[in-house]
Lab assay of single mutants.
Amino acid sequence: EPSQADLDALLSAVRDNRLSIEQAVTLLTPSSGGGSGGGSMDAKEILTRFKDGGLDRAAAQALLAGRTPA
């Protein structure tokens, strides 16, 4: 399960175009075949909204942490 520091680094990389959204989703869902963790939004949607400015960093982190299976 990614830590808050991992999520923060991942969000920074996506925002700075050092990591594509697809690459980030793969890192967030290493063994689930890329499927959502059952959250209301999947990781790709969360990351896309964050990059487009629709979500701030704290909200994106909380959503990603919340949808990651324990």
Results as ranks from 00 to 15, higher is better:
residue 19 L to S: 02
residue 5 A to K: 14
residue 15 R to I: 14
residue 52 D to W: 06
residue 16 D to L: 05
residue 60 A to T: 07
residue 8 D to G: 08
residue 24 A to G: 03
residue 49 R to K: 14
residue 39 G to C: 12
residue 27 L to G: 02
residue 62 A to S: 10
residue 3 S to W: 15
residue 47 L to T: 00
residue 63 L to A: 08
residue 23 Q to G: 06
residue 58 A to L: 13
residue 1 E to G: 09
residue 21 I to T: 02
residue 37 G to P: 14
residue 11 L to E: 01
residue 25 V to I: 05
residue 10 L to Q: 00
residue 27 L to M: 15
residue 2 P to D: 12
residue 68 T to I: 11
residue 2 P to N: 14
residue 37 G to A: 07
residue 22 E to H: 06
residue 31 S to C: 14
residue 58 A to P: 06
residue 29 T to V: 13
residue 44 K to V: 09
residue 37 G to H: 11
residue 41 M to T: 09
residue 61 Q to W: 06
residue 53 G to C: 05
residue 38 G to Y: 09
residue 57 R to V: 08
residue 59 A to L: 08
residue 16 D to P: 00
residue 33 G to T: 10
residue 67 R to H: 09
residue 20 S to I: 02
residue 38 G to S: 09
residue 51 K to V: 04
residue 22 E to G: 05
residue 56 D to T: 10
residue 7 L to Q: 02
residue 61 Q to I: 15
residue 62 A to Y: 07
residue 68 T to K: 12
residue 47 L to E: 01
residue 51 K to Y: 06
residue 48 T to M: 07
residue 4 Q to A: 13
residue 61 Q to G: 05
residue 25 V to C: 06
residue 55 L to C: 02
residue 38 G to N: 15
residue 43 A to G: 05
residue 48 T to Y: 05
residue 64 L to Y: 01
residue 32 S to C: 12
residue 53 G to N: 04
residue 24 A to I: 02
residue 4 Q to K: 15
residue 63 L to I: 05
residue 48 T to G: 06
residue 43 A to I: 14
residue 21 I to S: 00
residue 32 S to I: 12
residue 28 L to V: 05
residue 52 D to P: 00
residue 12 S to R: 08
residue 20 S to A: 04
residue 45 E to D: 12
residue 32 S to N: 12
residue 43 A to K: 05
residue 63 L to T: 02
residue 12 S to G: 06
residue 65 A to N: 09
residue 40 S to Q: 12
residue 46 I to W: 02
residue 9 A to G: 06
residue 10 L to A: 03
residue 33 G to Y: 08
residue 52 D to V: 06
residue 61 Q to E: 11
residue 53 G to Y: 04
residue 16 D to H: 10
residue 38 G to I: 14
residue 63 L to K: 03
residue 24 A to M: 03
residue 17 N to Y: 03
residue 66 G to M: 06
residue 30 P to Y: 13
residue 25 V to N: 03
residue 48 T to R: 07
residue 69 P to M: 06
residue 37 G to E: 08
residue 59 A to D: 09
